[in-house]
Amino acid sequence: MLKIGVILGSTRDNRLGGKAARWLMDQAVQRTDLQFELIDLRDYTLPFFNERASNMHVPTQDAEGLRWQKKIAEFDGYVIMAAEYNHGPTAALKNALDYAYVEWVRKPVAFVGYGSVGAARAIEQLRLIAVELQMAPIRSAVHIQGGDFLPILMGQKTFDDLAHLQPLVSTMFDDLAWWTNALKVARER
């Protein structure tokens, strides 16, 4: 079965990401073609990237960076759960992406964003970063926007109230499955 890492890209104490990740994982476990694992950046104490170069050119020296690379290498594709801070992705997420290279190459990535505009600006930047890491960002994404995001953040709604996002999640997973399968076959050749 194809293995997908779901990367929770916010490490803030008061993040909405944990609830969003549980909501997504509840839907993910219903898939029979993909196996999902949640990867919380809080579980990796990556220092700010300070290696001599990317691990594309020079082996990583930092032990936590090596542990991160080993975990990331286990997967055939990824979903990145992205919060948007000041029109961009979190520093913790960008740092984690920088700590690997070889492990990302020729693997698909999908995005689930949350924030005032569904993290659209952060996801746009993450797509560019993914291309530089030789990943294949897929078109389908899920954007949890202000009208849904703020009531959940304020405790007035729960993710159970977001049934209108279900078709987007299904489409994203379908596209991710297709790309994951195609790219795995191509990598193995």
Rank of each mutant, 00 (worst) to 15 (best):
K3S: 14
V6F: 13
G9A: 10
S10M: 06
S10W: 05
T11V: 15
D13F: 00
R15W: 10
A20D: 04
R22E: 15
A28N: 06
Q30G: 07
E37G: 02
R42A: 12
L46Y: 03
F49D: 02
E51D: 01
M56D: 09
M56R: 10
V58T: 15
P59Q: 06
A63C: 03
A63M: 08
L66E: 10
R67D: 10
K70T: 15
G77Q: 09
T90R: 12
N95W: 04
A96R: 03
D98Q: 08
Y99W: 15
W104S: 12
R106F: 12
P108N: 13
V109A: 02
A110P: 07
G113H: 06
G115R: 09
R121M: 15
R121W: 10
A122D: 02
A122I: 03
Q125H: 10
Q125F: 01
L126F: 07
L126V: 10
L126P: 09
I138Q: 01
R139H: 09
A141Q: 13
I144M: 08
G147A: 12
L150F: 10
M154K: 13
D160Q: 04
L162G: 05
P167F: 14
M172Y: 05
M172R: 04
D175N: 01
L176C: 10
A177H: 14
K184F: 12
V185R: 14
R189S: 15
